[in-house]
Design a protein around this nucleic acid. Structure first.
Length: 277
DNA sequence: ATACCGACCTGTCAGC
DNA sequence: TGCTGACAGGTCGGTA
């Protein structure tokens, strides 16, 4: 589900609602755990921690925690603890009243000092929870902070299709299938073009497109395709602005040529065969 | 080192 | 009505 604009929208919504609140206790579901750290470790770090900030890093939601009640002496690791949530395709974080119905596929509940609960719901279980002691760094360049030189350097010498490179989170973090297709359309570049075959001018255009698409999508609260809603349960509106994603067979908004859909390394890719070279 | 490809899960929808 | 297969916003690990 969520790419950079959706995760940014969710993180902002959560920041507004839970910053300053304290996690009193944590419940984690059993089953094949959607956890990267152990359940015990996560509970130990979250419980009695104050949420100092909520922010987005790539497609991750990061809760900066301050240990509220540290037993013997606070250590540096304690002071910098972070709770990392990756939503996968269908993950959601919702702030609920305790009496609100617990949805199917709820895998984690954090009880807050304010009386509310922060719940993690994820039908497909592709999301992941973890805790990190040091500074969380998943690698990759933040697209909205990228300058042209660093952007071009990411792709130098790569023979992989530019679409695949854009989706590689170790290179650029936060861009997913929708925004890769939309950015390539705006830049006039076919998704199968080898990254190494793209000129400097085209990269400049591509970086501009990536930033514009992401910013516009954030301004509209992200794209809601089937079930995405933000932290307040509101849908986004950027899906109404999609020019190629999900428009197979429909006329290109620029030249009327039918939009094509091909599969690149397992992902649907949409483009206009006339506008994109 | 790099690049595909299936696996991981559940749900939904189209077609028969 | 119900079965099957394709597909879905993402990543990871194994293999070539």
């Amino acid at each position: 589900m969520p790419e950079l604009p959706e995760v940014e929208t969710i993180a902002r919504g959560l920041a507004k609602r839970v910053t300053g609140d304290v996690i009193e206790s944590v419940w984690l579901g059993e089953k094949p755990e959607p956890l990267k750290s152990s359940a015990r470790e996560i509970a130990a770090v979250l419980e009695h921690s104050r949420i100092a900030a909520v922010r987005r890093v790539g497609k991750h939601i990061v809760f900066d925690l301050e240990r509220k009640r540290v037993r013997p002496t606070p250590t540096k690791a304690d002071a910098k603890a972070q709770w990392i949530v990756h939503l996968g395709m269908t993950g959601r974080l919702q702030v609920s009243e305790p009496r609100a119905e617990i949805l199917k596929h709820t895998h984690a509940i954090a009880k807050l000092a304010s009386g509310r609960e922060l719940r993690f719901v994820d039908p497909r279980r592709l999301g992941r929870l973890s805790v990190v002691a040091g500074l969380f760094d998943p690698g990759g360049l933040e697209p909205l902070e990228a300058d042209l030189e660093r952007f071009i350097a990411l792709f130098r010498g790569r023979k992989t299709p530019i679409k695949s490179a854009l989706l590689n989170q170790k290179l650029l973090r936060g861009v997913g299938n929708i925004y890769a297709d939309e950015s390539l359309f705006r830049a006039g570049i076919r998704p199968r073009r080898r990254a190494s075959a793209i000129t400097r001018d085209q990269f400049a255009k591509l970086l501009g497109s990536v930033k514009a698409v992401l910013k516009e999508a954030i301004a509209l609260g992200g794209s809601s395709i089937s079930d995405y809603v933000d932290a307040d349960g509101e849908e986004g509106f950027f899906q109404l602005q999609h020019r190629v994603y999900g428009r197979e067979g429909e006329p290109c908004l620029v030249c009327k040529t039918p939009i094509k859909r091909i599969v690149i390394t397992g992902r649907s890719s949409h483009y206009c065969p006339k506008c994109q070279k």
